[in-house]
């Protein structure tokens, strides 16, 4: 998970856009997935995400493809779960225990998982092409979000890969003690993971506490909106990008 959220340095047009523009564009792309009920439109938005990743560079594209693959695996699980609970429409398949697969169920579930994928990808793309500090700073400068909240949000995102790494290390340590994390039985694995919440929780609380003390000792509470030295001006290319996004949204809504 961590790898999907790290910044990848680059000089592409996406890297050079104002962080606020990128956030707005990603929001617009998310909304686009929900304003239309057409599978083709949502597929188009997903394709646009991949195209934008290609514009941002080979590394970003590779990561987006990896992420798409991971999302497809997760979506398959959700699709199966969803399709079994929609009972409206023509029955395509009757399963044991009174379960049905209907045409509406398939269509709705497919749209549901496609929306999930289409709405997840833009935010991950923004995080790939924008340093976390820039996102925090632009939220404070342009949207007047209190620094405390912006910092908290960014720290939470930053901690995801750290905790993922920590969890992997804890699982290694427990496997070395004979805990069968290397079992192929998914449900057994889940049951074994539960006791690991203790060391993860302990280390998380310790990390967060020491992090909080470290920032407080460096005057965190004295920080105001004007403290940041970097400015994030909106340039013509940002206006053009935002206009393109709004035009796309309007076009999809009009369909």
């Amino acid at each position: 998970m961590g790898g999907y959220l790290d910044y990848i340095a680059g000089e592409s047009i996406l890297h050079r856009l104002n962080p606020l523009t990128k956030l707005c564009l990603s929001f617009v792309l998310c909304v686009c997935c929900f304003v239309s009920d057409s599978h083709w439109v949502v597929a188009g938005v997903m394709a646009l995400n991949v195209l934008l990743a290609a514009v941002a560079g080979r590394q970003v594209l590779r990561r987006s493809c990896h992420m798409l693959r991971a999302l497809v695996k997760f979506s398959l699980f959700l699709f199966v779960l969803q399709v079994l609970f929609v009972r409206d429409g023509a029955v395509l398949l009757r399963l044991p225990f009174g379960l049905l697969v209907t045409d509406l169920g398939v269509s709705f579930s497919l749209l549901f998982v496609m929306r999930l994928m289409g709405a997840t990808m833009p935010l991950a793309l923004v995080l790939s092409v924008t340093p976390m500090n820039d996102i925090a700073a632009v939220l404070v400068e342009k949207l007047h979000v209190p620094y405390k909240y912006s910092f908290t949000l960014m720290t939470a995102v930053r901690f995801i890969p750290i905790f993922a790494h920590e969890m992997a290390e804890i699982m290694e340590a427990q496997t070395a003690r004979g805990v069968e994390f290397d079992t192929r039985n998914f449900f057994r694995k889940i049951r074994l993971i539960l006791p690991l919440c203790v060391p993860l929780l302990i280390s998380s609380v310790r990390k967060i506490e020491s992090g909080a003390i470290a920032v407080e000792l460096r005057g965190f509470n004295c920080r105001k909106r004007g403290c940041a030295y970097k400015r994030y001006d909106i340039l013509p290319r940002d206006l053009l990008a935002m206009a393109s996004g709004i035009a796309l949204l309007a076009a999809i809504a009009a369909l």
Partner: peptide
């Protein structure tokens, strides 16, 4: 061989004990 099975033959002490300790 699975690592969990190898645990009977090879004990591993990690640098950070907090990754190993999970009981109260």
């Amino acid at each position: 061989l699975r690592t969990s099975a190898l645990a009977r033959k090879v004990g591993f002490l990690f640098q950070n004990p907090d990754r190993q300790i999970c009981q109260n």
